[in-house]
Every structure is written in structure tokens, then in C-alpha cells.
Amino acid sequence: MSSSAPALSVLDLVPVRSDQSTSDALAAMLDLARAADDLGYRRFWVAEHHNMAAIASTNPPVLIAMIAAATQRIRVGSGGVMLPNHAPLVIAEQFALLEAAYPDRVDLGIGRAPGTDPVTSWALRHGAGGVSDEAVSRFPEYVENVLAMMEPTGVGLALQGRQHLLRATPEARSVPQIWLLGSSDYSARLAAEKGLPYVFAHHFSGQGTAEALELYRSQFRPSPELAEPRTFLTVNAAVAETTEEAERLALPQLLQMVALRTGQPLTAQLTVEEALAAEVPEAHRGMIDAMRTRWVIGDAEQGRAQLADLASSYGVDEVMVNPVAGATAGTATDASPARIETLRLLAA
């Protein structure tokens, strides 16, 4: 990467193709992480999604431990943990242990959305009402709790007239870097108020990015964790030797996003050949075209130029790439070579 290019990172949803098992998808994830590490990418984040046929990233802390063990220097983190799904102490304990095992390599990205359907949200909270309005409304408090519990000094908890000390781990020497994530202005405001780094999910929304980043920067209050605003954005990318091939490789994920946004049944990710053979209703073609314009799709030179334009337009020095290039029939089931090729061509 040239000195004028943005730093590059990776977001992985751990996609599961129609020809893959979960084991295959995890093996492909580790290959992708090792490639990102070798290519000099800054960080590798995994998302939290539940009960989806095409996504295996249900448990970020478990995946982070696997990825950190398989790599050497790249930062590893969550993009993100959906905090209303979990007790703050559980997240604090998990990430304190990860930081202890891999000091100065762990990021804790926190989001507010459930990352799944209402029934699964209910099941995540052990049948206790799902991700209730109360859990979502207390999100700022939960963020504060996680921050405090991971500090070496811990946090005091008043219970039944007595003060109790809570620590996420007995002898912390460092803490993960904490980021707030969002696809609306809510987390931008909260990150600015608390003086935390902020990431806008441009790969998912594609709209409102400039407004959210400007809101974050203009309202930012310095904190002990951060003296000035720090942010980057995410983008979907499929890059190949030719633009035509990149367009083919992007199609399975484009169809997956159309299904998600139109309420169709979600299936495992199609192969390229299955996607090319799929019948797309005329009403959905405009949606595909609109999404395509917001993604990075092209050959290596085009892809790198698009990333540089994104970084310049939004005033960021880092872009996190979600490599969405699909697989052709006959690809080894435990590998995702087109996704690795996307990373290789963008880093060249």
C-alpha cells in the first residue's frame, strides 16, 4: 500500500455457502484472517448475527480467540458485539480474557441492534423477554458498565446496603480498545458524548454516512480514552483481475442483501453459477443497481481508487473492507479464494 492510500482492515461475517458446512466456513475464515495478517491489514473484525442460514458469526469472542491464535500481529475484534443481547459483565469478562491472552491486539466494537429476528432475540435472553425496550434504552449505561468493569481497579456495585467490587479479570494490565458502532446517528451522538472511537456501518446502510461522521466530529468531547475524534468506515468489496469477473463475484452477496431487505426467506449464500441462474424480479433490479454503486467492485486499480476516494470523501485514514466476492462451482469447500484475492489486489 502506498503512503497516500488509507490503511485497510477487514470485516468478516463468516459467510456460509450452499456447498459449505459451518466447519468449512470457519476454516475459510481462518485462511482469510491469515491472508489479511500477511498482507499488512490493520485489523480483522467479526460480526454478531444469529439464526441466519448464510452467516456463521454467532459468537464474536469465540471467533476472536480462534483468529488471534492463528495470526501474528493483526488486531482482532468484534464488529460488533450487540450489547443488549448480553449482560455487560459477561462481555467485560470475555474481552478482558482475550486482552490478557493477546495484549494490545484486541478491539471491542459495540453495537445496539439485536443482529437477528425478534424470536431469536427472545431466546438469546433465556426466554426473559427478548431484547426488551428497557435493554435498548439502557444501552448507554451498559456501555459505561463494560468500560468500568474492565478497568484494573474494577467498579463498585451497591447491593443490599453493601458495596461490592467487580472486576472483569483479577489482574488486568491492559484493556481492549473500545469502539461504538452504528448505522444511524444514535451511536454517533453517544460516541461523541463519551469520547470513544466510532465506526459507521457504511457497508450495511450506505446512506447517512457523511451526516453521522460530521455529527460525531462536531459533538466530540475529549475523554481519558481519546483526545480527539477517531473514526473509519466499512464497505463491501469484490475485486478481481477484470471488472467483469468482479461483477460476477459480487452477485451472490447482492442477491443475499436483496432477500434480506425484501423479506424473502434467507438461504445459504449461492455460488456464482447459482446466482447467475437465479430469476431476479424486475422490481428488485433497481435495488441491486443502487447497492452496486455504493460497493467497491472492479479490477485492482479501480478498487484501490474507489477506496482512496471513499477515504478522502469522508475524511478517514482507514477503511474496513467486507470482502464479498463469491465462490464458483468446484471451489474447495474450506476455502474462499476470491475473498482472499480481493484483499490481495486491494493491498498491492
Rank of each mutant, 00 (worst) to 15 (best):
L226K: 02
S312G: 14
S336K: 06
D309P: 05
G303H: 02
R248V: 03
A113W: 00
E247I: 10
A69S: 13
A278Q: 10
A65F: 04
A275Q: 00
W179T: 02
L266R: 08
L196T: 01
Q207V: 15
A325G: 04
R217D: 05
E151H: 13
H126S: 15
A246D: 04
E245L: 11
P222C: 11
A25N: 02
A237W: 00
G156L: 15
A332V: 10
S223H: 08
A277C: 11
A212H: 03
L307K: 03
A201T: 04
A158V: 15
D133T: 13
T231P: 00
L32H: 00
T22W: 15
D299W: 04
Y102T: 07
P15Q: 07
L11Q: 04
M52E: 09
P61Q: 05
S21F: 11
L343W: 01
D37P: 01
Q207I: 15
P252H: 02
P140C: 08
A268V: 08
V14D: 00
A325Q: 01
E318S: 06
L345D: 00
R221E: 12
T293R: 15
F204D: 03
R285E: 15
A268G: 08
S184E: 05
L30T: 05
A188M: 03
E241F: 08
L345P: 00
S336M: 13
A87Y: 14
M82V: 03
G77A: 09
P152D: 08
D299A: 06
G286Q: 12
T293F: 11
D117K: 09
V199F: 04
L13W: 07
L254T: 05
M320Q: 02
A53Y: 13
D104T: 09
D31Y: 09
L89N: 07
A54N: 10
A5R: 09
L63H: 02
R173H: 13
A277L: 09
G195S: 09
A135D: 06
R167D: 05
S223P: 02
H203E: 07
V324P: 00
L346R: 00
A300P: 02
T293Y: 11
R112H: 05
S183E: 07
E245R: 13
M52V: 15
Q219L: 14
D185C: 11
D107Q: 06
R42A: 14
P61T: 08
S9G: 10
S137N: 14
R339E: 08
V81Y: 00
S137V: 09
E274A: 10
L254V: 08
P265F: 11
S18W: 05
R112N: 03
P114D: 07
A5L: 11
E214G: 08
H202D: 08
G286S: 11
A92M: 03
G263D: 10
G111F: 02
A259L: 10
A238M: 04
T328V: 14
Q253N: 15
L165S: 12
P229Q: 06
E93Y: 07
E279L: 13
E193R: 12
V235W: 03
G208Y: 06
E241S: 13
G195Q: 03
L98V: 06
L147Y: 07
G206P: 02
M149L: 15
N85T: 09
A348E: 14
A33Y: 02
S18I: 12
A27L: 09
A56Y: 03
R138L: 12
L215V: 10
L307T: 01
A192L: 04
N236W: 05
G115P: 00
